[in-house]
């Protein structure tokens, strides 16, 4: 669990984004290092939504930020349409990055409170040198309409005049105005109420179809991920546990951690044993992660082998890859 390997990477022309052996570490003082992402590989095909799930400290957010190059990776590669992004700097990076946009968890904090909605949405175009004018205005208008922010005077208002759900619409509009191919969404609905969450999830599905988007959807909420994703990757303590198409992952979870996660959903009817029998104890420190399989300290199946030998991802069913010696 919590293993490495790239057996699950696919080949083909329709792979938009490919991450290979990505390692991200943060200094933690006194010469120590937080192992946030430790050798993660994953790919996303054109028009696909990849769900990335796991609990806090699993590295899902760091992965998204490293793909966007908001975070520097220590090693590994990020390829966008077969172009290597990891080595790029400055304007070249910025140009490539334009095709990928990111949506953050806290929509209110993502918007500069002093600026008007229209200026916020237009910002990306401005950064890319579009002069204010009829063309830009029309584009901004069109996108705002598409995310449900049409209407007289909306553009003139400031973020604090809007609810959380509407602020997230503004953030989505701001990303879409750049006409990206890939949208990386980091917990985009977890700050929202259920009814508003449903609005945003529906909106994202519509936009995905209308704009031909490819998405990476990072979330801790399994039910939400299940509903929006075509393929799901489960992470634990910086490692990949399991990658599979959504249906098999939820129907026949193979990794012990995946099973524990699913069994922890309150009131689920998935026919799993109590979560308390599937996972024990607490998350180990990412500064000194366990040897071998990182999940072994909490795993009911763990043996000595798990401490010595790190499991690699292998295919246990068609399209279902698991990093566990005993899956």
């Amino acid at each position: 669990m919590a293993g490495t390997g790239s057996a699950h990477l696919r080949t083909g022309d329709d792979i938009v984004l490919r991450v290979r052996d990505l390692v991200v570490e943060f200094p933690a003082g006194k010469g120590q290092v937080v192992h946030a992402v430790s050798g993660v590989s994953v790919d996303v095909a054109q028009g696909e939504t990849l769900g990335v799930v796991g609990e806090s400290g699993c590295g899902k957010t760091t992965l998204g930020r490293a793909v966007m190059r908001l975070q520097d990776a220590r090693s590994g590669s990020v390829e966008f349409r077969d172009h290597e992004l990891t080595g790029l700097e400055g304007s070249e990076l910025a140009r490539k990055r334009r095709d990928m946009q990111m949506i953050f968890q806290d929509p209110v904090s993502s918007l500069n409170p002093r600026r008007r909605v229209r200026d916020l949405v237009r910002e990306g175009l401005e950064i890319w040198g579009s002069q204010p004018g009829p063309f830009t205005d029309a584009r901004v208008e069109e996108i705002m309409e598409a995310v449900g922010l049409g209407g007289e005077g909306v553009g003139e208002r400031r973020p604090h005049e809007f609810s959380g759900g509407q602020c997230q619409r503004i953030c989505i509009a701001r990303a879409l105005v750049m006409d990206p191919e890939v949208l990386i969404l980091d917990e985009p609905v977890s700050a929202l109420d259920v009814s508003v969450q449903a609005q945003i999830l529906n909106l994202l599905e519509d936009l995905k179809a209308d704009f031909g988007l490819t998405m990476v959807f990072v979330s801790h909420d399994l039910a939400v991920v299940r509903n929006v994703s075509d393929r799901v990757m489960v992470m634990y303590l910086g490692k990949v546990c399991e990658v599979a198409d959504t249906q098999p992952l939820f129907d026949t979870p193979a990794h012990p951690y995946t099973r524990a996660l699913l069994a922890s959903i309150p009131g689920h009817e998935l026919g799993l044993s109590d979560a308390s029998t599937l996972i024990s104890g607490e998350l180990p420190s990412p500064i000194e992660p366990p040897s071998g399989c990182r999940f072994r300290t909490r795993c009911p199946l763990a043996t000595n082998r798990c401490a010595v030998e790190e499991p690699e991802l292998r295919e246990v069913a068609v399209g279902q890859f698991v990093a566990c010696h005993y899956a």
């Binding site: 953050f104 904090s109 993502s110 918007l111 701001r174 750049m178």
Partner: peptide, 11 residues
């Protein structure tokens, strides 16, 4: 705050 990251993400 996230909007600084958001601006950087837009280039």
């Amino acid at each position: 705050r996230d909007f600084v990251d958001a601006a950087r993400a837009m280039g």
